[in-house]
């Protein structure tokens, strides 16, 4: 089948292939592998923002559990992740089911639901920052203190994230819904299955891999939340909405402790790699 390709000398082909892959290799090596090695080294040293590092293993790791801000951030981030994942998945599934059929005007609704996703997350956070300000925004008449208390700050952030990401997750689910053959539905309907039975017995099981993908993207994204809490709530009130990545950032650039920040990001790395390993099992398992 590949006469021409082979007859040109596999050694020359090999060299050509390596040449084309060189830019990839340089970028992966210099900007991904090297930083990964460096973050391990940094986590073993007292590494100030300015000045030279000194070896201090295992101090950076020991002090993780002594940092009340980080331990609070762990619980807060887990709580946020659980709430967002449930609400976002439910909303995205509802939206996807509403716009899955090819009816007139469905394109408009898909676009409308997705459009917030085209706006950058930082821009979206600033938009809500203004919209939920009672002096400037349209909801002042409700007299709700949107980011004034810890619970309300979390609630308002959830509104922001749902608005920004529901369409994104809807799109993921739509790709899964559209890969379900139409005749499966028709067969079920002729057998007299109700709408609910079709959804529960056919749609949900066949959508399982897509839902798993959405859940993993939502969980990993939420565990690494930063922009929404840095921009929208600024960690407040009283550090009640400080996420794990915000603590990494604060340690590095406010406490000038890059070694401590590196140790924290090693913890994040291990958690995320473990989660991704679970993801691969779920995604590849049932096939």
């Amino acid at each position: 089948m590949t006469h021409a390709l082979n007859s040109r000398g596999s050694r020359r082909r090999q060299l050509a292939g390596m040449l084309y892959a060189t830019p990839t290799a340089v970028i992966v090596g210099a900007l991904f592998i090297a930083p990964l090695v460096l973050v391990v080294i940094m986590s073993l040293n007292k590494w100030p923002l300015l000045g030279s590092p000194t070896f201090n293993f295992p101090k950076n790791y020991q002090k993780i559990t002594d940092d009340p801000l980080f331990m609070d951030a762990v619980w807060f981030t887990l709580k946020y992740t659980a709430i967002i994942t449930v609400l976002l998945s439910a909303l995205a599934l509802g939206l996807a089911l509403l716009v899955q059929d090819r009816r007139p005007g469905v394109g408009f609704f898909r676009t409308a639901f997705f459009l917030p996703g085209a706006v950058g997350f930082a821009a979206a956070a600033l938009l809500f920052y203004g919209m939920l300000n009672n002096d400037f925004g349209p909801f002042g008449f409700l007299h709700v203190n949107w980011i004034g208390t810890p619970d309300m700050a979390l609630f308002s952030t959830i509104l922001l994230v749902l608005w920004r990401f529901a369409g994104f997750n809807m799109l993921i689910l739509l790709t899964g819904l559209q890969s379900i053959p139409v005749d499966v539905y028709e067969a079920a309907r002729t057998d007299g299955a109700s709408r609910w039975q079709v959804f529960y017995r056919i749609t949900l099981p066949l959508l399982r891999p897509t839902i798993a993908l959405m859940l993993i993207l939502s969980i990993t994204g939420s565990l690494l939340a930063f922009d929404q809490f840095f921009i929208f709530t600024n960690g407040g009130p009283d550090n009640s909405t400080v996420s794990m990545v915000m603590v990494v950032y604060r340690n590095a650039f406010f406490r000038f402790d890059l070694g401590g920040a590196a140790a924290l990001s090693m913890v994040l790395l291990i958690v995320l790699v473990a989660l991704n390993a679970v993801q691969l099992r779920i995604l590849r398992g049932p096939r």
Binding site: P35, L36, M42, V245, A252, S265, L269, V273
Partner: peptide, 15 residues
Amino acid sequence: LMVPYATILIPLYVL
């Protein structure tokens, strides 16, 4: 894709 953004950016800042 698997590695947290912050985990690469902190050492990249130094690198």
